[in-house]
Nucleic acid binder design. Structure first.
Lengths: 258, 258
DNA sequence: TAGTGGTCTAGACCACAGC
DNA sequence: CTGTGGTCTAGACCACTAT
């Protein structure tokens, strides 16, 4: 084991677990432990620092929470290798893509990996209040809800729930599992709602347990929460709520100076 | 203490700490424990579930990591009250704001709170490689770096590091602590670089310890990382790296369908 | 089988908040 | 002073991985 330094156990010093976390963090940053590499076992760290196991584990918990380490049961603790980031430009909704039969997720996946979709659920329902207001619907109006998960090379990267007013989606392929070439937006334009503008609201938070499970997130990985509203003139024709693994996404926006 | 249910300690059941975390999470979601309210103490939870203290603490650690709970030493553990979210639209860089003497952070703070800036550091330096490439500079070119922290009603919300080519900033107010009315962008336009476009790249991750300290972040709060590049025609005139508390920000972008 | 991390116990002493 | 959470010890048994 490479030299990790020692800790100061005097009462006025920092907590020992914090010192160990700092030393390990510095070792990782300095590449003493490279991404993907195994760090010393808990037993070795106990011996090296002369502390109890829980103290070592607390230090490791700090670094797992920062997303720097991942544990693999029975194998060891490893430095998390940096993820491949997907750069998504805001032209991913270009009409040219739709006319070429590409839905947005397929367009943005080009050159990154093989896109796929699963856990598709389509239903008619009463929308939540905020969705209803965003769509400008009357209190008892219905929407078609499309819920699904997107994967890249088999790795789940995004959960997406779309809501389209029933008056637009009724009887179209939007109500089927497979909405056809060009995706939902192509179908919406076919029934006469030419898309003119998008609005996206971006925030971040820690995932819920269900999101962690569906996105197969390691601890210490937040999610990007994006709500997009598609407009045809002044009328909103779709609201989509997406939850993206922050590991896999980098969103790019361009806008003119006005 | 309200009824929290019981745990199943049989070997084939879920780990006890996970069950306790689930029960507490459900109690919080169902408003049994409302935001800001104190949850039962560790001793009470130990007695209620009949487990050791470390088991209770592990359950609490899970919920702290999710951002649902915060501990206050000597007082108790509390349900985190939901933060005020700042909605920031992408017109915050409008020239009209600059001409009214408002820098971007002041413009975006209107109606939200009282903006302020501290920890200002201005220096000339060699930029990091990625900044240099983004600015299209030659290998030994220098930039003016402006580092500062933004606060809203005294609460730190954002760390921002700007880099402006020395050829643009030299001898202007950009090299002073206070860049004057309208901010940096006003000064850049004054020396003949009319801004035409912005690019923003948005991602999220857990904060480093330094960022946690400077932004006064509770555990379980990620940061939004935004790099913005300002363009005058084809030439990049500024790169700014911002780290924002995800608690306080909701970014809004609008873009036309093309 | 040996070594790893995952869970859990039953204590201890400390620092801080509030009465 | 009491009760709270923060830190730490020294064990135990389990589940998983690799050989």
């Amino acid at each position: 084991m490479p030299s990790l330094g020692t800790v100061d156990k005097s009462p006025e010093a920092e907590p020992v677990f914090a010192q160990i976390a700092d030393l390990l963090r510095a070792a990782i940053r300095s590449q003493m432990f490279a991404p993907g590499q195994k760090i010393p076992s808990e037993s070795e760290l106990m011996a090296h620092f002369g502390v109890a196991r829980m103290t070592v584990r607390e230090a490791l918990a700090v670094l797992k929470g920062e997303g720097l380490l991942v544990a693999e049961h029975g194998r060891g603790v490893f430095v998390r290798s940096q993820p491949v980031v997907r750069r998504i430009a805001s032209d991913r909704f270009a009409r040219a893509h739709r006319q070429a039969g590409k839905a947005a997720f397929i367009a943005e996946s080009e050159g990154v990996g093989k896109p796929s979709v699963d856990q598709v659920q389509v239903s008619r329902e009463k929308p939540a209040v905020d969705v209803r207001v965003e769509l400008g619907l009357r209190p008892h109006a219905s929407v078609v809800a499309r819920r699904r998960r997107y994967l890249l090379d088999g790795t789940p990267v995004e959960i997406a729930d779309s809501f389209i007013p029933l008056t637009i989606a009724k009887g179209t392929l939007i109500e089927q599992e497979n909405p056809g070439p060009g995706g939902i937006y192509a179908r919406i334009e076919e029934v006469g709602h030419r898309l003119t503008e998008f609005k996206e609201e971006v925030s971040a938070r820690m995932p819920t347990p269900e999101e962690r499970q569906r996105l197969a997130l390691a601890s210490g990985v937040p999610v990007l929460v994006v709500r997009r509203v598609a407009f045809s003139g002044d009328v909103a024709v779709e609201v989509i709520d997406t939850v993206k693994s922050a590991n896999h996404y980098l969103l790019e926006y361009r806008f003119p100076a006005v």
